[in-house]
Design a protein around this nucleic acid. Structure first.
Lengths: 245, 245
DNA sequence: CGGTGACTTGAAGGAGGTCAAAATCTGTGG
DNA sequence: CCACAGATTTTGACCTCCTTCAAGTCACCG
C-alpha cells in the first residue's frame, strides 16, 4: 500500500478546495512524514497528551472532544476530510482536547514544528493555516450558540443541516443521494449537550414529521425549509472554498 | 490626546506578553491605522457586518456574541487587553458574530488586509496570529464544555476562575486586591447559556457559601480550592505567555 | 423625585435529565 | 446456521434543574 504524493492528493481536485501553487504543494510534501490508517472509535490524540503531531484528515470522519473527570463528554467539532488537526494545542503544550475517529480514517502526519516551517517557508500557507484555524473556531462558535441558546429540536435541526452541508461539499452529487452519517445518537447527544434519551426522542419526532431521514449510516434532509426555519439559520448556501494543507 | 507608538505600547512590557523584535513591532506600527475609543455597551462590530477592520483591544473589556432572530443571545468569549479581534470573519466575508464593549475601551485599528501583510512581511508575526487564533478557539472550547456538560454551579465557578486568571495576569499584584469585573449578571447568563434569574440565584448561593465575592465591579476569589473542585479544573496555574499584535 | 437599569426573591411550570427495560442489530465463535 | 455478548436504538415513568412570570428593592441620574 503505497502512499500518495501531495500533488496527487485525491482531495485537492475537489471544488471545495482552493488551488495551490506547485511550490506550496511541494512544501507540504516535504513536511509530510507519513500516512496513518485507523479504524472507527480509535483515539488519535489523547486529552492531555503532550507533543502530538499535526494531521490532515484525508478520509473518514472524526471528532474533537473534552471530558470532565466523572466522564461527562462534550464533542467540540466533527472533523471531515480536509480538516487540519492539532493547531489548538499550544506549542509544546498538552493537548487540551482529544481526537477520536468515527469511521475508518486516513491521516497525513506532520511533525509538530511543521506549523512553524509552513509559516516560515510560505507566508501564503501560513495564512491558510490561520484561515483554517479561524474557520474551525467559527464552527465551535456556532455550536456554542446552539448549546447555549437553542432548544433540543432546534439544536438537532442545526446540526443536521450543518453536517449535511459539509459532507455534501465533499461529494459530486452535492448530497442528492444523501450523505454519509456515521454518528451514533450518543455522538449527537455529546455534540449538543443533550442526554442520549432526549436526543433519541427528539430525533424520532423530527423524523416522524418528515424533516429528515437517517438510515444505514446515511442522512437525507427531507424538508430543508422546515429544518432551516427550526434552526433559525440564515443566508449561505454551500460552505466557502477553503485551503487544504 | 496623542496616540501611542507600538514600541511604547503600555501592554508590551507586561510579563504576560512575549517580547518582540524591533522589526516586528515596526511592521505592526506600519499597519496600525489609528486608535479608537469607545464607551461601555457600544457595538464595535455588528453581526453580519462586512469588511470590518481588525483590532487589538488595548484597554478595557468587551465580548464577542451571536444572537438568534428572536433575540436570544450567546456570548462566545470575553475580550481583555491584548486580545486580537476580527480574524474569525473569513476574508472579505460577513462577520459571523458581533463585538460589544463592557467598559470604556481603547482599540488599535488595522486594515482588514493587514492580516495578510502581517503574514507576508513576517512569518513570525503570522505564526503569532495563528497562535492567538488557536488560543481563542480553545477558550470557546472550554466554554462549550461548560455550557454543554456542566451544571449551573459548575459553570459559574469555571467562569469566575477563568476570568479571574486572565484579568489577574494583566495586573502587577496578580489579583491580590481582586480584579475588575465589569460583567452584569445578564452577561454571565448569556455567556453560560443560563437564564438571568437562575444565574442570580446560583451566584448568590456560591457567594453565601464564601466561594467568591463580587462588589463594586470587582471580583475576589475567596475559596479557590472549592471553586476549582466545583469546576473540575485541573492543572495550570497562570495563563501561558502570549504574543501581542 | 420619577425613571431606568441592575439585582433579588418567590412561586409555578416545563424542557430535558435519569432510571429501567425491552427491542434491534451486529459481530463472533461454535 | 444458531447462540450469545455487546452495542445501539426505543419507550415509558418519574423527577429536577432551570426557565418563566411577577414583584419588589436599590442605586444612580437628569
Amino acid at each position: 500500500m503505497t502512499e500518495v504524493r501531495c500533488s496527487a492528493c485525491p482531495l485537492r481536485p475537489l471544488p471545495l478546495f482552493l488551488r495551490n501553487d506547485d511550490d506550496e504543494v511541494a512544501i507540504v510534501q516535504s513536511l509530510k512524514r507519513r500516512e496513518m490508517q485507523m479504524g472507527p472509535g480509535e483515539t488519535l490524540i489523547h486529552e492531555g497528551q503532550t507533543n502530538a503531531p499535526l494531521y490532515t484528515l484525508r478520509e473518514g470522519w472524526a471528532f474533537r472532544y473534552k471530558t470532565l473527570s466523572d466522564g461527562r463528554r462534550q464533542i467540540l467539532t466533527f472533523l471531515l476530510a480536509g480538516d487540519f488537526i492539532g493547531v489548538q494545542q499550544k506549542m509544546g503544550d498538552a493537548a487540551a482536547h482529544g481526537v477520536m475517529t468515527l469511521t475508518d480514517s486516513l491521516f497525513c502526519v506532520f511533525q509538530r514544528d511543521s506549523l512553524w516551517e509552513l509559516h516560515r517557508q510560505s507566508p501564503a500557507m501560513g495564512f491558510n493555516i490561520t484561515w483554517l484555524t479561524a474557520h474551525e473556531e467559527s464552527l465551535v462558535d456556532d455550536t456554542l450558540l446552539s448549546v447555549g441558546r437553542r432548544s433540543a429540536e432546534e439544536r438537532i435541526a442545526t446540526l443536521l443541516i450543518l453536517l449535511f452541508k459539509r459532507a455534501a461539499a465533499l461529494q459530486d452529487d452535492g448530497g442528492a443521494a444523501g450523505v454519509p452519517f456515521p454518528l451514533t445518537q450518543q455522538h449527537i447527544a455529546d455534540g449538543l449537550g443533550l442526554s442520549l434519551v432526549h436526543t433519541n426522542k427528539t430525533l424520532r419526532k423530527l423524523e416522524r414529521r418528515g424533516l429528515h431521514h437517517i438510515e444505514d449510516g446515511r442522512l437525507w434532509l427531507r424538508d430543508v425549509k422546515a429544518l432551516v426555519r427550526l434552526a433559525d439559520l440564515y443566508g449561505d448556501g454551500r460552505p466557502p472554498q477553503r485551503p487544504l494543507v
